[in-house]
Each structure stands twice: as C-alpha cells, then as structure tokens.
Design a protein around this nucleic acid. Structure first.
Lengths: 341, 341
DNA sequence: GTTAGCACTCTTTTTTGGTGAGTGCTAATA
DNA sequence: TATTAGCACTCACCAAAAAAGAGTGCTAAC
C-alpha cells in the first residue's frame, strides 16, 4: 500500500489533533476537521489502511487512533513546519551576556523549561581540540602550591598541590618557565612519557610537583567524563499523564539527576549537520528510561571547538513544531553570541 | 493529664509500628506487641488519652492511630536510640580521599541515598571567616589576563579578564605585588572604598584590570548565594506513598532541583551545638514544600572554618534511629578526615 | 483498674449495570 | 468503483450498590 496525498492529510490531521488533546482521535473528528469532505465511514477505511501501514495505533478496539513512533517520525520528517520561535526574555538575557558561563547556561535551561513546559538539560561546552594554553604555578603558603591550567577556549582548572620541600621564588619562576615552554600549545596526543620523564628530571628535587601538575594537565585535557550538566523543569513531566505515573516518573527523575541522558546522546551523536537539531521519538531513544519520551537536542557551538548540547524532554506527543523552532532560535543566538567577538 | 511510663511505652510501640508499616496501628496490635500484658480495651483507653494530649491522631473514626508531629518530636527527643551506623563502602571511600572535594561530596550523597533509601543533599563547605589568602594575575594571551583568587581554606576562584592595553611581564609582576601586599589577609569588612580607589590610582593605566580583580575578590569573599549543592536519590520519594502523589512529588522534585531546601535551613541554622545534628519534622519545616517531610541535617566541619551541611529528606515516618545514627557516623568521619592533617 | 462484648462507623473492595464513543462490516447509492 | 448510511458490537469509564474488614467507644461485669 502506498502513502497518497489523502492519507497524508488524514495522518496529519490525526497527529495534530492528538498533540492537542492527548486523546485517541476518532473518524468522526477527522471527517469534520479536514477540508476533505469525506464521511466518517470513508475516513475509517483510510484509517484502517494507515494502521496496517504502521503509522497509527488503536489502543483497544472501539477507541480512536493514536500516532505510532513511525507516525510521529513521518510527521517530524515531512509534515512539520518548524518556524523559528522567539523566546520571551531570552533576548535580553543573552544580550547581558552574563560573565559566568555557568550562570548563562542555568538561565537558558530555566527560561527554556518555562517557555516550553518540558524538562530541559544543557551541557557546558567541551572542546575537543583541547590544546594546552597556559600553566601557572604559584606558591600559596609554605606547604601549598597552586597549579592553574588553562586550555584553548579559556577553560580553567585549578589544583592545590601539597609540597614538602621549600620552594623559593626563583625556583618557582623556573618551574613555570620549564612547564610552559615544554607544554604550551600541545594536545593530549603530543604529550608522551619520555617527555614527562625529561621534565621531571629537569625539575630535580621538585619532580614531585611537576608530576602532579602534569597529571592535572592530562586530566584536564582528557576530561569529558564528568561533563557539567544543568537541568530545569524536571517537574514538568508531571504535566503529562503518560509520564506521570510513579514508576516512569521515578526513572525519569533519576535519569535527570544522574544527568545520564545527554551523555548517552552525545556518545552516539549523529546530529544532523545542517541544522544541528536532532529528534528522538519514543523507542528511538537509546536510554531505556526514555522509551516513553521524545527528546529533541540541539548542538550549539561557541567557536574554538567549544560545543555543547541542549536537550528537551517531553512526552511522545510533544509540540515538535514549537520545540524544534525554539531550539533553532536559541541555537543560532548562542552560536552568534560568542562568534561576534 | 501526665505522661507516665505506661503511656510512654504505648506511644513508643505505636510509633515503632507505624514507622515499620506506614499503616494506622490499632489497639489490638499494641496489646500483642508490648510486654505490658494489657487487653486491647485498656490500650484503647490509654490511646484515647494520648490522643487528647496530642501525641497521636486518628485519621478517621474507626481507624487506628498515627503519630502526630508532637508524637514524633517526643520520640526523637526522648525515646530514640540512635546508635552509630556504619555505612557500607563509606569507609573505603573516604580513606581513598578523592583529591577533588567535589567528587568526594558526590560520592557521599550517593552512598548515603543508597544506604538510607531517602533523598539526600549535601552542600559544598563554605567558609565564613573568609580571608583573602592570595591573588595571582597572569597574562594568558595578548587580550586576556587570568585572575586567580584563593581564600582561607583553599577555596579557589578564577576570572578571565579582557584587557585592551598591552601589559608586559614586569608590569604584571608589579600589579601582583601591589594587590597581594595591599589585600592579603583581609576579610571583606576590611576592604573599603578609599582603599580600592588608592589601589586603582597606583595601578595607573591598568586601573581597569585592578578594578575587575577587586570585584572578583569581593564577590568571592561574599559569595554564599550560589552555594554548590549535590543531590542524590531524589527518586526515593516515590517509595513512600505519602509523598508520591503527583502534586507533592512535583513540589519536592522542584525543591531538589532548585536546591532550595538546604539554603533555607542554613539560614535559620540553630543546629544543635553538641551533636551538629538537627531534626525537622513535618510542619516544623520552614519550606512550604516540605511540610509533609521530615528532614535531618548534619553540619560537618573540615576545619579552617569550612563548614557544610548534609540533609536527608524522607517521609514523616522516616527511620529516625537509623538516619540520625548514620549521619552521626558520617559527620565524625568527615570531621576527622581533614583534621588529621 | 481491667476486660469482655457488642453496636456502630467508616474505609476499601467488589459487583453490577448503564452510558457513550468509536469501530468494522454490509448493503445501498452516486 | 468509490463513497456513504446504517447497525450491531466492543470496550473503557463511571456511579451506585453491596459486601467485607478493621477498629473504635461505650457499657457492664469482674
């Protein structure tokens, strides 16, 4: 059987209606809602076909139809009209460009959650071309040396190192010189054991400190395991009965608290290169706790290879048009924001 | 009417039983469960008295009794036997002393949630005697200067500052000297406007940079607003029917996501000075979203005035003995841990 | 002071029957 | 041949009724 224009129209009507109401939609409704001028009986025949083709499902005999994952997929891929959505407040918020990236991200998810009424997550950007930019060792007190590591994209990490030996100012300067000269501009692949050994040797009695610093550098460069994730509007899942029963809600809450979702997705990131937006519908989700949800993600890019992901999680019958539109709009805003510099 | 030994025993039996089952407990049960050898009829009389005194409540005629907040309070204050509880895994975990405080805290809440089956939170320690220990300015590239601020207790903050003017190494050194000499060892109260003005003046054309650094210093010293909070086991609330209905769960989830609870509590911190442990039962909670919960908090102290709070949130009928015991044990472990140095 | 006995209350569960939305199928229609 | 009217049938949903159970308060006896 083939999809023709009339079937498409009917499917679209069914999905639109279901997105609105959340109730199974019957033949009579469609007969009245579309401009096809067909009786409910004819619609029923068509609906039987659509069901056979796998686009819609009947929850039980004598109920209307609801879209299947395949149906939603068809809708998202070919029927949806995602117009860019302005997000209230967002513009002002981004213009202020809060000086702490962290605060900015927190605001974004918060506003996004309030605007869409779904649960939202965002990952802090991680760079994947990780090059070491700068190392600074400073003596804080007689027992502590502070190592500050800055990588391309101005991500900063600190490590307080305990030292047993006394280090005078001059030595400190030398160690700084030594480390910066040797390591600056390098990526993780370019740092090897013999290099480390040589540096330690050059540091003489301070090889311990140098070793610790290098450990920190390596950790910083390879770090993506504990990527920072901010969430907002988790409670929104209770607005959708299909997610709100205890068992499902519990799983979702855990997934949000553990911030596991976006990590999973980023792993398998086959994000659409054109738009940077990806839609995962119900069973399409890898994560078993998300099988009853749809997830829409957007990859944002702050330049310098600093990329992060925004995710919106809602029920299957989420308002894809709006969500995709909103994400598109935010994505471009974020992309532009830092690129302008 | 007065509390006598028999009433106490009966009250204790009622509470113990209710903590176990979550069902209203009837006179017959108590008659069998205690060693008083009294008939259910006698128990009924006593229960009527206990109700009159406000220690127990009858949800409806012809149901058993459940403890009131006052009843729980009596139990916690005088009946409970909180024996220190070993937490499985915890010992090993702390011995390893993960070098990142953050990871350690995350592990603590996680283990705690798994062990108690309640929802848990922990705040990163904040020092309240905030003295500036050390400032380090470094040139990262031609447009960026990195300011690192360390305060007593080795809390570190970074700020990347954009500069328009070129700054050579020597000037950098001078600025560092200037700032450290002027500010080190000071608390927020000791930094005043005229001092800032003078510093800026001494910095000449670099007054902008100095101003930014001082802003960051002030922010760091006063910061306690966005105190870091880690949570775990939020989903545990679904294990207790009295918290699991959608509306209540939603509120709780939000409170956890927004991390508002511990902040509230820390504000009004009248923490028991002897044990550092505090119990808030139902309506005793300030936070309106928590009126159906009990919260047990412990203040831990890493020395140098670095204090943080652990919170365990569960239903009114939480296992106070176990929770208080566990918290005591963890608190002492944390207190000892860093003090040993 | 304690207890047995009993009527009474109130929740919870099960049963029952009715209602309505929606379907699939058949036969008539354009 | 495609569409439609008509109709019997299915099934979730709701409300009312009935039954079961747990526990109480009170009275009278011990």
């Amino acid at each position: 059987m083939e999809m023709d224009e009339r079937k498409t129209k009917i499917l679209q009507a069914i999905i639109r209606n279901y997105l609105d109401t959340g109730e199974p939609v019957g033949s009579r409704t469609i007969s009245k809602d579309t401009d096809l001028n067909l009786s409910s009986a004819t619609i029923r025949n068509e609906m039987a076909d659509l069901e056979e083709m796998g686009y819609i499902i009947q929850p039980h005999t004598s109920a209307g139809r609801i879209p299947s994952d395949k149906g939603y997929r068809f809708y998202v891929d070919t029927l949806m009209e995602a117009k860019e959505q302005e997000v209230a407040d967002m513009k002002d918020m981004l213009l202020e460009r809060q000086d702490r990236l962290e605060d900015m991200l927190k605001s974004v998810v918060k506003v996004l959650a309030r605007d869409t009424q779904y649960a939202t997550m965002i990952t802090a950007p991680t760079t994947h071309l990780n090059k070491l930019k700068f190392i600074q060792l400073s003596r804080v007190d007689s027992e502590h040396v502070l190592a500050v590591v800055v990588i391309e994209g101005n991500m900063i990490r600190n490590r307080m190192i305990e030292v047993t030996e006394e280090i005078d100012d001059e030595t400190m300067l030398k160690l700084n010189m030594l480390l910066n000269t040797a390591l600056n501009g390098l990526a993780i692949e370019q740092i090897n054991l013999s290099m480390v050994a040589k540096l330690k040797q050059q540091a003489g009695i301070h090889s311990g400190v140098v070793g610790d610093v290098i450990d920190e550098v390596i950790e910083t460069l390879t770090e993506d395991k504990d990527l920072e994730v901010y969430t907002s509007g988790t409670n929104n899942i209770f607005k959708y009965p299909e997610l709100a029963d205890n068992e499902k809600a519990s799983k979702l809450i855990t997934a949000f608290e553990e911030k596991e979702l976006l990590g999973d997705i980023i792993q398998t990131n086959s994000s659409d290169e054109n738009t940077g937006i990806q839609v995962y519908i119900g069973g399409e989700n890898q994560n078993s706790n998300m099988q009853d949800c749809s997830v829409v993600t957007a990859t944002y890019d702050l330049g310098d290879g600093m990329k992060g992901t925004i995710g919106i999680v809602g029920p299957r019958r989420m308002d894809y048009d709006k969500v995709v539109g909103t994400l598109k709009s935010i994505k471009t805003k974020l992309d532009d924001l830092y690129r302008k510099e």
